[in-house]
Design a protein around this nucleic acid. Structure first.
Lengths: 146, 146
DNA sequence: AAGATTTACTTAACATCGCAATTATTGTCA
DNA sequence: TGACAATAATTGCGATGTTAAGTAAATCTT
């Protein structure tokens, strides 16, 4: 017979969805004022941290699908937040880099973003916050295995 | 000056996205064969567990937005997986219930779903798996506060 | 009880997700 | 070298995410 599934309240996918929903709320509120989406914010954060990246690597680090990134970058280029240039050696690649305007946008939101992050940390407790990040990292590492 | 933001690899939103990406992979693979999306699967799981629910409660428990649920239910009614009837006392409400076909779809996938869940549990270790669910629950509880 | 307010859901519009197919470029090997 | 495979990005399509506005029904006010 069919096995009994765990309660939806203890289902990992559903728990992840609910957590994401809760976590993203304040962030979207913050970003709305700057006219960028959470996806665009992730792109900016990754580019500022890592420097110019090809589209594939950027998509992976920002947790975006390639097709989504293609369209997102298009809009960000139009807004002047990033630049996109064809690769030198490999003309298939698209090198994406953050602009001064992009850096400025991060700076303009850095204080609030740090406050929000600190709020979660305080809510869970510093130790448990770190444990959570470790556990999420372990899930992501498994990526694809099954 | 603007505070320095944490590394994107230790950013809670990005970590949640990556974890979700990894976790959903095998699930989508499983569901593809049955012709249902992960959202439809969550709706079925919640309804089978809780019985008939009004749309608002269902949306909350399945981690879906109301507008998304409206469309999803429409499709699921067409497929015969759920029924939708107007509330008796309050005609604004839409009572949604799972059908036999919906129950059968869950049963058909229950074995594989349990295997996948057990795979994650084994990957993290039973204790850490429970801790993760607790931590995600704590995040979701905060919902909106900030 | 008529009018204003609130609630539950739907519709609309646009962006993103997720998959599949295409295009352009590079790499491989007979 | 030339056909073929592999890679990087783009495009197309249907479904969902997200916000705002709209509709209908219940509730509150006076």
């Amino acid at each position: 017979m069919a096995p009994k599934l765990v309660s939806t309240s203890r289902s990992l996918p559903i728990a992840l969805m609910h957590a994401r929903e809760a976590v993203m709320g304040p962030i979207r509120e913050m970003l709305g004022a700057s006219g960028v989406t959470e996806q665009q914010w992730r792109v900016l954060r990754v580019l500022e941290e890592a420097g110019a990246l090809d589209a594939s690597t950027l998509a992976q680090r920002a947790a975006l699908l390639q097709p989504s990134l293609t369209r997102i970058i298009k809009g960000m280029v139009a807004k002047g937040l990033v630049t996109q240039v064809q690769g030198e050696h490999d003309r298939r690649r698209q090198e994406v880099a953050i602009t001064q305007a992009g850096v400025a946008l991060i700076a303009a939101n850095a204080t609030r973003a740090a406050e929000i992050a600190e709020g979660w940390r305080a809510h869970l407790g510093a130790d448990r916050y770190e444990v959570l990040l470790d556990l999420l990292g372990d899930l992501a590492d498994r990526d694809g295995v099954q």
